[in-house]
């Protein structure tokens, strides 16, 4: 199916892909839909981009649902291991 479901988050950070240096990213677009490249019928897709920048300056992830959960868990663990004052 084509879910159309799309969730967005304002973010602030940098990203890097092959062939380009780091660039600012201000928006994460997250959706569960057909991937362009991953060999799965549906994947959890994340686009990290600068909404005001060149569309080619984008880091794209296509993860199986289980991989996405593992990533969320890894991020939560990494954040949990850091003292609160460092995350302010």
């Amino acid at each position: 199916m084509c879910t159309y479901t799309t969730v967005q988050a304002r973010i602030d950070g940098s990203a890097k892909g092959p062939g380009v240096g780091f660039f600012h990213v201000g928006q994460a677009t997250v959706y569960f839909d057909h991937p362009v490249h991953a060999m799965a019928e549906h994947t959890l897709n994340i686009d990290l981009a600068d909404p005001d920048g060149d569309p080619a300056r984008r880091v794209a992830l296509e993860l199986t649902a289980e991989s996405a959960r593992q990533l969320v868990d890894a991020i939560q663990q990494a954040l949990a291991a850091v003292p609160e004052e460092l995350k302010a």
């Binding site: 799309t6 569309p55 080619a56 984008r58």
Partner: peptide, 18 residues
């Protein structure tokens, strides 16, 4: 949305814009 961009990058912009 994304003149001259690759199809997948253009699609990402279009989706992000609703």
């Amino acid at each position: 949305e994304a003149p001259g961009a690759s199809p997948e990058d253009a699609a990402a912009v279009a989706r992000a814009q609703g």
